Computed example of a mutant assay.
Amino acid sequence: MKIRILFYLIGLFLMGFGVTLTIKADLGAGAWDALNVGLSNVVGLTVGSWVIIIGVILIFINALIVRGKPKLLAVVTILLIGFSVDFWLIVVMNNVHLSTLLLQVISLIAGIILIAIGVAMYLQTKFPANPIDQLMISLHERFQLNFMIAKTIGEVTALILAFILQGPIGVGTIIITFLIGPMIQWINKPMTKRYELLLKR
């Protein structure tokens, strides 16, 4: 049980840090994060607050897709992610400004890798998924799509909404949109083996 909780918390912690790095790279945030930043700029509230609000909305959308009951325990997950994003973005890296293109690219790549590792880690635990990742799982279960395609569908949908709200969209957004799905797919298998090995100890 300790390993399970540890994977869950570390995964969400890494995910929040990864999101912050992609935003700070200022090359274009991931589609969902660009949407949250756009909402924060247009409506107000913190980026983490919009992570939570959008997450609650997606909980009910996911229930409709799989024709089941809303997974309300997922609120715990999005609360942790929302607080994690605000912690990294406001408390730790508020005054961090990347002065060169090289640093921006490094921040973007590191952010993508950390998000993928974080997602792959906490999904192993079978605790309620982040509603964005649950959207990927719901599409996978309902339409038998692999994770790569299911994740990309969600990312493109968010990208359109982020564009409408004038969120921070750029070349980084396109890279994240089409790379995050394959990256999760690639990391998921070895992460599963590692998790199962740790549980047997």
Rank of each mutant, 00 (worst) to 15 (best):
M1W: 11
M1R: 13
L9P: 07
L12I: 13
F13V: 05
F13T: 06
F17L: 15
V19A: 04
V19R: 01
L21Y: 00
D26L: 04
A29H: 02
A31E: 04
W32A: 05
D33N: 08
V37G: 01
G38C: 02
V42R: 14
I52C: 06
I57V: 12
L58G: 00
L58T: 01
I61C: 08
I65K: 04
L72E: 03
L73Q: 12
L80C: 05
D86T: 02
D86G: 02
W88C: 00
I90R: 07
V91S: 13
V92H: 03
M93H: 01
N95T: 08
V96Q: 00
H97F: 13
L98M: 10
T100A: 09
L101A: 14
L102S: 15
Q104K: 15
I106C: 12
I117A: 05
G118C: 03
L123E: 10
F127T: 05
P128L: 04
P131F: 09
P131E: 07
I132V: 14
Q134K: 10
F143M: 06
N146V: 10
M148I: 12
K151D: 10
E155Y: 07
T157P: 05
A158M: 09
A162M: 07
I164N: 08
G170P: 03
I174D: 11
I175G: 13
I175S: 08
M191V: 12
T192H: 15
K193Q: 06
K200W: 09
